[in-house]
Structure formats: structure tokens, C-alpha cells
């Protein structure tokens, strides 16, 4: 690769790595896996950088690569999620601020429990639409499907998310229900 192209990729990767990792976290619910997904996506982009960097919207392409990488990872048998059947003991967090704890706990529950119970493609649609603030058309491009499919997946994803939130404990559920 030419030096100029390599420099262009370096700048792109440095400026977008964090955002890609955040999106990946919302996809998979785990920061370590999210970092792996981000690195794998950027590596794919580097290998195809010669034809990628001339595109109008490199960000959209990066999101698409990240989504495909995550869906591919999910299909691999050795990547299947662990099944937790035991109860972990609760420990007090000395650094936690009681004033902020409520909202953060709710968000964490939303991501870790409720969002992870939504099927992968519906979860991806929800993340792209409500976290990335993409339009239906942009999500359709990233998902490689029609806009109608995005709308239906969004509706189903929201229903699944609401049902999952309902199952959370009464205090959290009581806060989010509206």
C-alpha cells in the first residue's frame, strides 16, 4: 500500500476506533469482544482500503463491515454465548455514586439483559437506529436489506426489547415503563 493511503487509513482508524467499539459493544454486550470485533473490522478495511477510501461514505462502509463481522462471529459454534446457570454473590461497589447508580444500572440492565435477549438482526437494527441515529434508508444499506425489512425488524425488535424489560426486576421495570 502506498504511504499516503496507509496514512489515510491510520487517520481513519484512529478517529473511528472508539465509535466502532461502542457500537460493537451494543451488538455483543461485552467490551473485550467489542474490541476484537473493532480490530477485525478495521483489519478487513485495511486489506480493502485501496477501493474503500474513494467511497463517498467510508463510515457507513465501516459500520457495514462491523455488522457483518459480528454476525459472522455469532455464526461460529465456538463463539456461542455461555449459559449462566448459577447466581453470583453481590458485592458492594465502593466507587459507585448512589445518585448516578440508578440510571446507570438501568442502562446496564437494558444493554446486558434486555437488549441481549433481542434476536441479533433486530438488535443490530435497534442499535443502528437509536444509538447511531441512522435513518431507515441508511440502516437498510448497512444491513443489506430493504427499508421495509428495516421497519418490520425495528417494530419486532422494540416489541422484543419491551418484553425483555418487563421481565427485569420491578424497580427497574417501574422506572422504564412509560
Amino acid at each position: 500500500m502506498r504511504k499516503a493511503d496507509e496514512q489515510g487509513f491510520r487517520e481513519f482508524a484512529t478517529s473511528h476506533a472508539a465509535a466502532l467499539r461502542r457500537t460493537a459493544y451494543l451488538f455483543c454486550g461485552d467490551w473485550h469482544t467489542a474490541e476484537d470485533l473493532m480490530q477485525a473490522s478495521l483489519m478487513k478495511m485495511y486489506l480493502a482500503w485501496r477501493r474503500v477510501h474513494g467511497m463517498d461514505n467510508v463510515n457507513a462502509y465501516a459500520r457495514k463491515v462491523l455488522l457483518r463481522t459480528w454476525l459472522d462471529e455469532k455464526r461460529r459454534p465456538w463463539r456461542r454465548a455461555e449459559q449462566h446457570d448459577g447466581e453470583l454473590p453481590d458485592h458492594a461497589d465502593a466507587t459507585a455514586d448512589p445518585d448516578l447508580t440508578s440510571s446507570r444500572l438501568w442502562a446496564r440492565e437494558l444493554v446486558h439483559t434486555a437488549l441481549l435477549q433481542v434476536p441479533p438482526r433486530q438488535r443490530a437494527v435497534l442499535v443502528l437506529r437509536y444509538f447511531e441515529d441512522l435513518s431507515v434508508a441508511e440502516v437498510a444499506v448497512a444491513m443489506g436489506c430493504s427499508e421495509g425489512t428495516v421497519k418490520s425488524q425495528t417494530a419486532r425488535g422494540l416489541a422484543a426489547l419491551r418484553a425483555a424489560v418487563e421481565k427485569l426486576d420491578s424497580s427497574t421495570a417501574g422506572r422504564v415503563a412509560s
Binding site: 484512529t14 451494543l26 437494558l110 444493554v111 442499535v127
Partner: peptide, 29 residues
């Protein structure tokens, strides 16, 4: 749960993300 709640919840969920240890040179190599 409104769409705004979901949007806000996702933002808060990534608020305490761990520091990013990313080296583009290592990735390129």
C-alpha cells in the same frame, strides 16, 4: 418504554467504557 428511553439508555450504557488501547501501527503490521 419510549424510543427516547432506548436512545438514552444506549448512550448511558457506553458511558463507562474502558480506556481504548488501540495502536494502528500494530494493526497494520
Amino acid at each position: 418504554m419510549s424510543e427516547q428511553d432506548i436512545r438514552e439508555g444506549m448512550r448511558v450504557a457506553v458511558w463507562d467504557e474502558p480506556p481504548l488501547d488501540f495502536d494502528p501501527d500494530q494493526l497494520i503490521a
